[in-house]
Simulated scan of single mutants.
Amino acid sequence: MMPSRFPAKSRVRRCLSPVARGVALSCGLAMTLAMLSGAAASAQTIQPPGDLMKPQGRNAGATAKPGPMAQVVPQAQAAANPDGRAPRATVDRITSYYNSVQALTGNFTQIDPDGTRRTGDVYMQKPGRVRFEYDPPSPVELIANGQSVAVRDRKLNTQDVTPLSQTPLRFLLAEKVDLASDPHVAGVFQDDKFISVIIQEQVPMIGTYRLLILFDAKTSALKQWIITDPQGYDTQVTLSNLQVNKKPDPKLFVINFERMLQ
């Protein structure tokens, strides 16, 4: 499913629950590939659960253990080709299927780098629009409107925004993909359960992001993705109860930019 050269270990960071504002954004919104870094605040500073995209600093007290990305690595050996790579016909099939999915709604389960498990509802409309609503007690929403991605904290009444083009979500939300020719695709791999697409991007002054997307080997359905930030920390999102090509309400993807002026 994945190449043997892919890192077999992942370090774990301590993720605290929702984000507190008043924080210096760790490399600036323009440079962060992730969601709104809240790195240098006081002990009360907390970060958003839903942090699908941002690089965060390592917590010195965290105990290192393999993340979700590391857990799937051993399955890479079970593919048909000697190096685990999927045949071109499989690559074309997954490309065709994913391009046919222009909208979906359903549920998600997120596992943060420290093992924290969160659930909620997801709504997606290509190109570029998605909404993650986290179940209580989390007050966080993550919204992409086609150009920007916002993290809202309803409890703290805060909002941080970064360009969609600077986040790994842009690959998931692209209207059309070509897995055979996209230079960011590091490989497509296959075993009995999953077809795995590895996307990699080097970001100046930040490092390399890796996005692992898992599709069902039999049905081609999108099942899961894992984002590894430049520090090697994994965030896993698993989808369930999906309704494909059922268009969500467009109002779900509206970002209220006036919140940033308050």
Rank of each mutant, 00 (worst) to 15 (best):
P7F: 06
R11D: 04
R13T: 09
L16D: 14
A20C: 12
V23C: 03
L25F: 07
S26A: 10
L33D: 11
S37L: 01
S37K: 02
A41V: 13
A41M: 09
A43W: 07
A43G: 10
P48L: 13
G50V: 14
L52F: 12
N59A: 08
P66R: 10
P74H: 14
Q75I: 07
N81F: 00
P82I: 00
G84E: 07
R85P: 00
R88N: 00
S96K: 13
S100P: 03
T105Q: 12
N107H: 15
F108C: 12
F108N: 09
I111M: 15
P113S: 09
G115P: 01
T116P: 06
R117G: 00
T119E: 15
E133V: 15
P136W: 12
P137T: 08
E141R: 11
Q147D: 12
S148P: 00
V149K: 03
V151T: 08
D153I: 11
K155I: 14
L164C: 10
T167Y: 02
L169R: 01
A174W: 11
E175T: 08
E175M: 12
E175R: 12
L179Y: 09
A180D: 09
A186Q: 04
S196M: 06
S196H: 04
L214K: 05
F215W: 02
D216M: 00
S220F: 07
L222Q: 10
K223W: 04
P230Q: 03
Q231P: 01
Q236P: 00
L239N: 12
N241S: 15
L242D: 02
Q243V: 15
K246W: 06
K246E: 13
K247R: 13
K251W: 01
V254T: 11
V254N: 04
F257E: 11
R259N: 10
R259S: 02
L261R: 14
